[in-house]
């Protein structure tokens, strides 16, 4: 399934007082591809991820996005997940009291139901989840932990990867999943992503660091500054950005 973003404009807040954050993004991610988006702080990278996920604080003012040819932005946030999109957040929300394993079962079943696939009963979930945890290289105790509540920043990122693996998307947008992780955790996350990759699955990695891109090789690298993609290139672009920074774009 192809994710196609065309001339996407978005703002936060209302028309009068709001602020334009995305100023015409064009991006096509084809099945099997890995794209990296890099850029300085405040460039609009997380905004792009949240707009794609359907976060209601942001309004799309022009342009659009399609997933597999269907209008992505016309869908409710949960319908976008059912359609095959997963967005891993830079700051996953803590949900106190909700047990991770039970949440994952409900999320899995919601997607299964939308796809007319069999739902998993509570009693059959534990072994299935254990297998997903193994695939995602997440810590074994994640089934019984809280949904981000009580997890460290790094553990929350790893929980996002686990959610991705459980939800089985075709397009994953991962927003700074590597920030706040030590090198071993980054390696585990990278192995999780690589194990999950398939010819029909694509991934957009939003990152500041070359390290993750050494482990998950991107096909294309894009530079996002001021709500626009100002340059695109091959994997060599990320190495150059790491050396030179974003100064040449005035950032």
């Amino acid at each position: 399934m192809t994710l196609a973003i065309t001339n996407l404009h978005a703002r936060v807040g209302d028309e009068a007082t709001g602020k334009a954050l995305l100023n015409g993004i064009d991006l096509v991610v084809k099945p099997g591809e890995v794209h990296a988006i890099m850029g300085p702080n405040g460039a609009g990278k997380s905004t792009l991820a949240k707009v794609l996920a359907g976060h209601d604080a942001y309004a799309v003012t022009a342009g659009g996005a399609t997933l597999g040819g269907a209008d992505l932005l016309a869908l409710e946030p949960h319908e976008r997940v059912h359609a095959g999109l997963f967005v891993g957040f830079q700051y996953p929300v803590e949900v106190p009291g909700v047990v991770n394993g039970e949440f994952l079962r409900l999320a899995y079943n919601a997607r299964a139901k939308a796809r007319n696939q069999p739902e998993v009963a509570a009693k059959d979930w534990a072994p299935k989840l254990a297998e997903y945890i193994r695939q995602a290289e997440a810590p074994e105790d994640f089934a019984g932990r809280g949904l981000n509540a009580g997890l460290s920043g790094g553990q929350r990122k790893r929980n996002e990867i686990l959610q991705m693996v459980v939800l089985d998307p075709l397009v994953a947008v991962l927003d700074e999943t590597d920030s706040g992780l030590d090198i071993d955790a980054i390696k585990a996350v990278a192995r999780g992503i690589n194990a999950w990759r398939r010819a029909d699955r694509s991934v957009v990695l939003i990152t500041h660091f070359q390290r993750l891109l050494d482990l998950v090789q991107p096909d294309r690298v894009h530079v996002l500054v001021g709500g626009r993609l100002v340059e695109s290139g091959g994997p060599e672009l990320s190495a150059r950005l790491e050396r030179e920074g974003y100064g040449r774009w005035g950032a």
């Binding site: 946030p77 949960h78 059912h82 929300v93 949440f103 919601a110 997607r111």
Partner: peptide, 15 residues
Amino acid sequence: EEVRYLRMRGLDPAA
């Protein structure tokens, strides 16, 4: 925030 996060993980508002 919590409702939004759960929705962005595929749960409808009632769920």
